[in-house]
Amino acid sequence: MKQTGDLFLVKKINKSIVLDMIRSRSPISRAKVSELTGLNKTTVSSLVNELIDEHLVHEMGPGKSSGGRKPLMLLFNEQAGYAIGVDVRIDSVTAVLTDLGGAIKDHCWFQLESNSAEHICGVVVRAVRELSARAPESPYGIIGVGVGVPGIVDEQGSVLFAPNLHWSGVPLQQMLTEELQLSVVIDNEANAGAVGEHKYGAAQDTDNLLYVSVSHGIGTGILLGGHLYRGSSGFAGEAGHFSIKLDGEPCSCGNKGCWELYASENALLLEAAKLDSVRKHTGGNPPALEDLIRLAEDGDPQVIAVMEHVGRHLGIGISNLINLFNPQRVIIGNRIALIEPWIAKPLYDTVKERSLSFHYARVSLEISRLKLDSGVLGAASFALQAFFAKTQISL
């Protein structure tokens, strides 16, 4: 009996290795899979046939030959199923449909009318169902949902604390799983952004990454050695709530002088709302970031000055993170990426001034090219990881 169990385990491990090789290297021949994995050709051929039967791999035309018959090339079937990634913000929900390779195939966006857990859960369900209905037919259908939330999330997918949403102890994974009857993964939105940049953005060749997500608040996804650093309890990355001013303004987290009070989109909007040109532009209503972008594009000097001020405060916090973690790369993303033309120089100048010279000399600092897609792509990636983990064995 033990031998049967051992043989089954070995086969499952080998099948996982073969699938990973085809996913990462396709188009690839059976012979090349055998060469790169060290598995014999008979084993590879048998496992590939199973993966073809399971619709995860298919054959394309013959490849180049170095002599003899041309080999049939294998492709990972990225359209065998679809994942949904969701990014929850304090005022909206964005969702994308991706194939198994992470390519975005569809998307939707909804404005939030309330920050209550019930309302947001309902909007997420609506987004998932809308994308599911529009998804192409496939052997595995919707394989799962990943959700990024601006708050502290535990291993059970409960949102323990999300100050900007005014949430505490919300069992979001349970709520969504019961409603959708799908596999659901919940994580912090900055962690999702870091994974999105690592898998699909500028950090694909980076093992040590800081992703700074700046929207209404600030979160940090930390990648060390190619893996998310979560801390001893899984709550690492709440850099928006470290204090940069001893006697600063009170924060929704209960602290005061928090970084996000001076360097977030919300900080920018609050400061800009005091300007005469902004009040005139909005008719006295609270401005949106898009209002400020239009005014800055028109050359409004006061709006540009406020943006630069926020950029300098961003630089202060980022220089502290660089001095602490000594990362290869720092990527600033989310909504703040939309005002790159006006914050980039003051941000970069401040980081250079305040970072230790040895740390600064070895770090790449940039604003995300994925802009608003880092988080939703990372969230979809969590769903994909959960799907493929069902056929994998961790050694």
Rank of each mutant, 00 (worst) to 15 (best):
M1C: 05
T4S: 00
I13Q: 10
I13K: 13
M21Y: 03
R23H: 12
S24Y: 02
R25C: 14
I28E: 09
T37N: 08
G38A: 06
L39W: 14
L51G: 11
E54S: 09
E54V: 01
L56Q: 07
H58S: 08
G67S: 10
G67W: 06
N77V: 11
E78D: 07
A83H: 06
G85D: 04
I90C: 12
I90H: 13
D91S: 13
T98A: 04
C121V: 10
A127N: 06
V128A: 07
Y140V: 12
G146I: 08
S158Y: 01
V159T: 00
A162S: 15
T177R: 15
Q181M: 14
A192N: 14
G196I: 04
K199V: 01
T206C: 14
T206G: 10
L209Y: 04
L210D: 01
G217F: 06
H227Q: 13
H227S: 13
G231W: 01
F235A: 12
H241Q: 05
S243Y: 04
E249G: 04
C253I: 15
S264I: 02
T282H: 07
N285G: 11
P286N: 06
L289D: 03
E297W: 02
Q302G: 05
R312F: 11
L314C: 08
N320F: 00
N320G: 15
L324A: 05
L324K: 02
F325P: 05
Q328D: 15
V330C: 05
G333S: 07
A337Y: 08
P346M: 03
L347H: 01
L347I: 08
V351Q: 02
R354Q: 12
A361F: 06
A361P: 00
I367T: 12
I367G: 06
R369Q: 11
I393W: 07
